[in-house]
């Protein structure tokens, strides 16, 4: 994304959002690792804790709870996002902390949220990392869709995998609904989101086919827009080769079932170093830069920067 910097110059900027549905799958850990990794490469980075209800990205980054938070911005006590920027121990990495106080901040009004997203897009920086909350609430979906790259963390457990699929589907429908203008089409999406709908629409692909049957021109245009929807997958807490191959199977499943193109960025091995570092409130990638987990997040970062994913033909055998 191109944006205007503070001095009016053009800056190349990328927003990466890390979500994933279920809690405890390593969203904050991955956000912090990516932000630190970018800062170590000398990039100017802002990490934003978009988990409005349960903010703790500052802890994962090894920073103190900042004086100003997103709630100051949302409630209008501070006019711009730059006023709530906090420093970290990395010179090029700054932090916008989530809300710590009000309960209602977890559910900002639509206008408040859109103002926030607009200002995020206007920040003068090279990379913005958004750490999203668990679940498929509109908050998480909207931040996810506002990003240039949406990353999903999954752990090799049924509950986590189910939630990731649900997240992908919800995000797809929400983006779809925004892309269509006609009220009939919007109604069709609402109908499709009900799993037991009368029209028999069960997958995003069914929905697309349904739209094309009604209006082929709109359908064709939509198909192009939605082809750009390509969530990235990271498998965390990998303990075996089968776990690592899960990303490939999920990518294949998403294509075969939803007709959605998912990219598998890489995996992070299960590693006690992460737990050890977290207990000391230190970022694992700083405490143990050579640990398997840190190498894993390093690969994920490299793939994001190169725009690559895990090899097409790779077949990890258990």
């Amino acid at each position: 994304m191109l944006g205007l910097g503070e001095q009016g110059r053009l800056v190349q900027k990328e927003i990466w959002a890390v979500g994933g549905g279920k809690g405890g799958t390593g969203k904050t850990y991955l956000s912090a690792s990516l932000a630190i990794g970018l800062a170590k490469l000398g990039k100017r980075v802002i990490a934003i804790d978009a988990d409005l209800g349960c903010a703790n990205l500052h802890t994962a980054l090894g920073a103190d709870p900042p004086a100003a938070t997103l709630s100051d911005f949302i409630k209008g006590r501070m006019k711009t996002l730059s006023e709530v920027l906090g420093e970290t121990s990395f010179p090029t990495l700054r932090l916008i902390s989530g809300a710590h106080d009000f309960l209602e901040i977890a559910n900002p009004k639509h206008t408040e949220k859109m103002r926030l997203i607009r200002q995020i897009q206007d920040l003068d920086v090279e990379y913005i990392i958004l750490d999203l909350g668990a679940g498929t609430a509109f908050n998480s979906l909207d931040f996810f869709l506002a990003a240039d790259r949406g990353i999903l963390t999954v752990i090799p457990e049924p509950t986590s995998i189910e939630n990731v699929y649900r997240f992908i589907k919800s995000a797809f429908y929400r983006r779809f609904k925004r892309a269509v203008r006609h009220p009939d089409m919007k109604a069709l999406v609402s109908c499709a989101m009900d799993q037991k709908n009368e029209r028999g629409i069960r997958t995003p692909h069914d929905l697309m086919a349904c739209v094309e049957a009604i209006d082929s021109e709109v359908g064709g245009r939509l198909r192009k827009t939605m082809a750009e929807f390509s969530p990235k997958l990271v498998v965390n807490q990998v303990r075996s080769q089968d776990d690592a191959a899960l990303g490939l199977s999920m990518r294949s499943s998403c294509s075969k079932y939803f007709g959605i193109h998912v990219e598998y960025l890489g995996f992070v091995e299960y590693d006690d170093c992460v737990w050890r570092a977290m207990k000391r409130k230190r970022p694992p990638v700083m405490e143990y830069p050579d640990a398997v987990s840190s190498r894993g997040t390093g690969t994920v970062l490299a793939n994001l920067l190169k725009g690559e994913q895990i090899a097409f033909d790779l077949c990890v055998r258990g």
Partner: peptide, 22 residues
């Protein structure tokens, strides 16, 4: 051959990656 074996595993009835979809 490897891909076919992997696909059979990935879409078996109890496979983690696909049981909740199909």
């Amino acid at each position: 051959a490897k891909a076919y074996e992997a696909a059979k595993r990935a879409f078996a009835g109890d496979a983690l990656a696909s049981y909740s979809l199909f």
